[in-house]
Design a protein around this nucleic acid. Structure first.
Lengths: 349, 349
DNA sequence: TAATACTACTACAACGTTTTCGTGTTGATA
DNA sequence: TATCAACACGAAAACGTTGTAGTAGTATTA
């Protein structure tokens, strides 16, 4: 196990100064071609590679961005990470991932752990708890310290930063409108509690689409699921609520769910009750993940283009980092909307 | 936008030396309580936090580990990351993610990008291309530079390092044995090409289980899928191969697939052919992901415990990092096997 | 009262770079 | 033969820390 080669070592061996070595490796015109060749050859021999940490310290930039997400076992976030990685890597940046596990304190701790010089900027999707508490102090502190921040998906207006989101309302509208067009008369909604911004916005889209078609939304058809503990385990609660819905409203012939899991579970319950899809019941979900694609019947869904979101977020962030370091006049903050697409599969007629 | 506070600034304002400030913040007995209190109060006021990069440079350790995986849009890897993150964070480490996208050169580039001082160690699952080329030079170089490395899941004996893997062969054996016990007589296998180590090992388990029960494996029943381009898109190839299998062997009553996607697709094809599951055909997959849980019928599967793998890998790596820095006598390399569990659901009787 | 021992600090080197500002040697010019 | 570029290189500061090795000034001891 050898130690890493440093400029100092090269200098000593070649009997020149550190400066000379450094300049030679950068093809400085100050250095004779002879020396350049010698230094380079020797550097190659010893497999010299500049120490990134030293460079970070000197340049005051780490070429690393931090992405903080609530959950990594989740197709959508995974796609976003992929988009971020792709763009960031192409720009010479590394990506460091922090998981909040939907917990406020984890989010804060994670950000503090990184905001000590380890990263040049953040890409964040808030934890559920943060949305609930509406405590955005850690974001503002980060911004005050001069660390740029881009929020995505779960965004909130109070924070002055760049944002990337999906047109949740419009996507939901489109989905519900499509169900109506395909003949559904009584459409139920399975959504989250209102503090989840995306759930709230998609609910809004659902209601607007109904209103636009002269249908008065029926509160009983709107299931607001509290998925505090849900996610991986204990879907029973969800299943039983859906069962009750079907029991009380046997004429429901359309379901719009704000994520693919809810939609798939709804289909499962429906099938177990002998309801045929899409003949008797049409279903559309949100987020185009593995589940939608491989469910049976496969699920029509609103695609969020997570990878594009990640790319855009990374682009905005790196742009902002450049702006900060170049002391350019600050640009106004961007709010980019990634448009959704409706992907029709077997769960709709 | 303020700049970050440094020791120097604190020192100047308080009219003491930098050393005094540094020591005061660390409660050094060299410093009077009076000064300590003053320094701390002022530091809090200015929201001082030590610069991590400077510390990394000084201590020659970054408290960061790099994890290189072939694909992040994949439940298993995602679970592993979660496990790594949890353990690493608890130990004060950050996790930086590199994606190879199953490409050899991406893997090499990614590792080189990080092996310049940015990280203290690697956790790696090889790309498919790397397995194919059998070119492990970049791993060995990394090790030679004194950067510890832990491989997981897709491992290979040639590399002298710690390893964490699943008992692929045994897990497959168990699955096939279970199918046999549940009455299956003619069991097909859907696996990968042999250069994928886990596919090869699971195939081995399949064959051994059959042999142990006095059944001679039939080559035609073994589908070796070339998923070079597959994954996200173009499942048609896979579907048509499975269709052909059923056409030629209508009496197949069991399927073991080396991942959940293959299993789910197999079920889909079977259902489309009017084959009932689990009555006429029983199916078991590998990897307990979202698909298995929410497929219909839900899929019996061999659970890999990705999170445990990640935890264990992180544990081994951090242990090794500590060993390297403390100049302790080197311990022999560990090869940890995470045992699999068979989770029985609706796709088996 | 001089030697000694604390106390409470400060100076400085070091980690590995880059970069600015010298500086000594050539060769050409007046 | 002085003067001055041009050339090729070196010294040193800087990035923000930490820790070792001083060093004043005061208090204790012989």
């Amino acid at each position: 196990m050898k130690k890493r080669t440093t400029l100092k070592e090269l200098a000593k061996e070649l009997d020149v100064s550190i400066s000379t070595v450094s300049k030679a490796l950068k093809n400085s015109p100050e250095i004779s071609q002879d020396t350049i060749d010698k230094v380079k050859a020797f550097a190659k021999l010893l497999n010299y590679r500049p120490n990134n940490i030293a460079l970070s310290l000197k340049n005051k930039k780490t070429k690393t961005i931090g992405i903080i997400i609530p959950d990594i076992v989740h197709h959508f976030f995974t796609k976003v990470i992929k988009g971020v990685e792709n763009y960031a890597n192409a720009k010479g940046y590394n990506v460091i991932v922090g998981l909040s596990n939907e917990s406020f304190s984890n989010e804060v701790i994670n950000m503090e752990m990184l905001a000590n010089g380890s990263i040049d900027g953040f890409i964040v999707s808030m934890s559920r708890e943060t949305m609930q508490h509406q405590d955005y102090q850690h974001f503002n502190e980060t911004l005050n310290e001069g660390i740029p921040l881009v929020m995505f998906d779960r965004i909130v207006n109070e924070i002055p930063c760049d944002k990337v989101a999906v047109d949740d309302t419009k996507g939901a509208q489109m989905a519900v409108k499509t169900l109506l067009n395909k003949g559904a008369k009584k459409i139920a909604l399975i959504t989250t509690k209102d503090y989840v911004s995306v759930g709230r916005l998609r609910t809004k889209g659902y209601i607007e689409a109904l209103n636009a078609n002269g249908i008065t939304p029926i509160p009983e058809l709107i299931l607001k699921i509290d998925d505090d503990l849900l996610y991986e385990d204990s879907l029973e609660n969800l299943e039983s609520q859906i069962k009750m819905l079907f029991a009380q409203h046997h004429d429901v012939d359309g379901i719009f769910a704000v994520n693919e899991l809810y939609a798939v579970v709804a289909m499962k319950v429906a099938k177990s009750l002998g309801i045929s899809i899409p003949e008797q019941l049409q279903v559309i979900g949100f987020t185009d993940g593995m589940l939608s694609k491989h469910a049976s019947p496969s699920l029509s869904t609103v695609s969020q283009h997570g990878e594009s979101m990640g790319q855009k977020a990374a682009e905005l962030l790196i742009q902002r980092i450049d702006e900060y370091t170049s002391e350019k006049p600050p640009q106004p903050f961007n709010s980019v909307i990634i448009t959704t697409d409706l992907i029709l599969r077997e769960s709709t007629k």
